[in-house]
């Protein structure tokens, strides 16, 4: 798994370098979660809409849309589309928009995101639709921790609890940093576990870079009949020492030397 995740991280940093813009910090913090999700947990066919029973797939929403490179690279490495497409990221006419777009019909991209705080309620709506259609798959929403400052998120959490959506899982990539600095300095979201519990969620706290823990927990919540939230404690910029825990790498592309140094660490 480590090798797999390193190869995803290599592509992430190459895409951002090639596009001369993007969001390495928050992409690196969620690569391990995404890799485990797509390799071990989600029931999503790589044939995408050509699959039989396509409508029975699990739905994945990347609410923190700025981590798009992590999702694109994970999907490509899992075979949803050719890796050749990756370097088109952020280029004119590319299906790999700066933030995920369902408009471009890129296999694997379920919904458009980018404006923060909306993915959770979209997930609530999708979960309601699945319930109405009696489809037993789950909706998985990956959120950023800074994103938890958006009011729409708490409206959505309240709605999910009100509807007792046992087919919705919320994962929070808690890397404790946002553009302007530490989340605790900008506007604290803590104590996040207590808040989620108060909103009716069964809360799991895990190390978001420990593959075994991620897999075990996500498989457990997959089976759960309760409303579940997983707080994945992560490191922003994980995998490249000079990017780790540095808010400056939230939305910055590496130069040629930094790219080489990063790739060296990700071997």
């Amino acid at each position: 798994m480590k090798t797999f995740c390193n190869s995803i991280r290599q592509d992430v940093i190459k895409m951002i370098h090639n596009a001369k813009s993007g969001h390495p910090g928050g992409a690196f913090s969620c690569v391990d979660i995404l890799a485990v999700l797509y390799k071990k947990v989600l029931n999503v066919p790589v044939e995408w809409d050509r699959a039989v029973d396509f409508n029975k797939r699990d739905r994945f929403i990347l609410s923190k849309g700025h981590a798009s490179t992590a999702l694109y690279a994970t999907l490509a490495h899992c075979g949803f589309f050719s890796k050749n497409l990756l370097m088109g990221f952020r280029m004119l006419g590319s299906k790999l928009q700066g933030h995920p777009s369902s408009r471009t019909k890129l296999p694997g991209i379920e919904v458009s995101t980018g404006s923060l705080g909306q993915g959770l309620s979209i997930g609530v709506g999708l979960a309601l639709a699945l319930r109405l259609d009696k489809i037993n798959s789950k909706v998985w929403v990956l959120m950023g921790d800074g994103e938890m400052q958006e009011g729409n998120v708490w409206e959505g959490l309240m709605n999910a609890n009100n509807r007792q959506l046992d087919n919705l899982v919320v994962i929070i990539d808690k890397n404790n940093l946002q553009i302007d600095g530490a989340t605790s300095d900008v506007k604290t979201i803590d104590p996040l576990d207590d808040k989620l519990k108060a909103f009716g969620f069964e809360v799991y706290s895990i190390d978001g870079h420990n593959y075994e823990q991620i897999e075990k927990t996500l498989l457990e919540v997959k089976k759960s009949k309760k409303l579940c939230a997983v707080i994945a404690n992560t490191v922003k910029g994980k995998g490249v020492s000079f990017m780790e825990n540095n808010a400056g790498w939230h939305g910055k592309a590496p130069n040629d030397e930094q790219l080489q140094a990063a790739l060296e660490e990700l071997k």
Partner: peptide, 25 residues
């Protein structure tokens, strides 16, 4: 069963509406 009152939360209503539409409704 096909009516969802989202309470006094219009942002949630519109995004929930979007999710239901993504689900084919």
């Amino acid at each position: 069963e096909r009516f969802f009152n989202c309470g006094i939360a219009e942002q949630d209503m519109m995004t929930t509406a979007a999710g239901l539409a993504y689900g084919g409704k």
